[in-house]
Design a binder for these strands. Structure first.
Lengths: 208, 208
DNA sequence: ATGCTAACGCAAAGCGATTCCCGTTAGGAG
DNA sequence: CTCCTAACGGGAATCGCTTTGCGTTAGCAT
């Protein structure tokens, strides 16, 4: 294995280097979306980007490294819902998650992320951080509900979002059941019940 | 790719064939447990089993096929708790799931299963069926609670178990947060709140 | 006990992933 | 504008995965 820490410290970040990076990342994204993780060939990415194979390996090391870099570039920013009622906000957040998974471009990314995270400890950390950032963003709907006095003040906002999101990923990657739009509403209702009962307080894990 | 349907229809299932199969599966299990999915080499499995490399490839095709066969052999049977109260039963089921993941032998299997399921549609189906079988077994604790009149009669037992299990897998494979024993109790309490509120009825997905 | 052939062992070969070497191009500091 | 060298291009070489051909062993039907 080589260094690859250059991802953070390139000596000449401008001009050609930047063009190469952009081209390769775009090609990788397209290939992943079309062929999926298993069907993606580094050589194809290089060819599509009009770049030498060795360039890809020098800068990213392998497909996993490429994906890690890709994630940093793509972290999807969705508007946070604010309907005035927590349950409908949660349902909206749920639909965003469903949408992410159903979108033909995003699904292969998630697949690749999960695969990579299982294989590479470094990737696991990256995935963990990416998800955590998304949770934090979505958690404001819970915090607003607390301010409104809609739910107990000691509710753990992050845990609420995790509880909401878990079923989607569970179905996608474990039980294999279909992920449908109405799952968002169902999941939101269940989470609400737990929150109202005051069952979502002290986090089971340190929020890092 | 070859046939590999021979996994189900071997012409000479006895004697040498059976010995080979047992030896290879045991070796595969050991290698997966020691090295994990990424570190497992088919050649190592063959060597450990005292079998020719080509034999492994002829019968199982690749590591994924081997894992599929392995799963059929291993489906873990745990006793189903029956404490008389649903919440403590759920917590016990949760602890079983936690234990499965923490056990040094089972963790690589789950990793391998998830990986394989993402790569191979056939494996996805297999994982789906395996999980469904486990859900069904665990769901009896919910059915008993219904008979006791402890929870609404129209509660969907399978969904309760899914709701209980989802956070564990979510933490393991998505958010990357630690999976601890007390998570079992927390998760059980949250599920109970939703069930009592009657929020876990009509299944969001057809039960297969 | 005997014969047929499934299943095995061995080894060569093709394929993609990854590394390495060497010559060339082009940022960007001076 | 010039020079230094980071970064690139091209291709050979290595490595693990997987397939295939051929000869051998051993179930199991008779």
């Amino acid at each position: 294995m080589q260094d690859h820490s250059r991802l953070q410290g390139v000596r000449r970040p401008g001009g050609r280097t930047a063009r190469t990076r952009a081209a390769v990342l775009e090609a990788a994204m397209a290939e992943l979306a079309e062929k999926g993780y298993a069907g993606t060939r580094i050589e194809q990415i290089a060819a599509r980007a009009g770049v030498a194979l060795s360039t890809v390996y020098r800068r990213w090391g392998n497909l996993d490294g490429l994906i890690q870099d890709l994630v940093n570039d793509i972290t999807v920013e969705q508007p946070i819902p604010d309907s005035g009622a927590l349950e409908s906000d949660l349902a909206a957040v749920g639909r965003i998650i469903v949408g992410l998974h159903r979108h033909p471009v995003h699904r292969p990314w998630m697949d690749a992320l999960i695969m990579t995270a299982i294989r590479e400890p470094g990737s696991r950390l990256l995935l963990s951080e990416t998800i955590q950032a998304r949770i934090r963003r979505a958690a404001v709907v819970v915090e607003r509900a607390v301010e409104r006095g809609e739910i107990p003040a000691d509710t753990c906002a992050d845990e609420v979002i995790r509880m909401l999101a878990a079923p989607f990923y569970y179905r996608m990657y474990v039980s294999g059941e279909p992920v449908t739009d109405d799952l968002a509403g169902l999941s939101a209702a269940r989470v609400m019940a737990a929150v109202r009962a005051g069952a979502v307080r002290d986090p089971g894990a340190a929020p890092r």
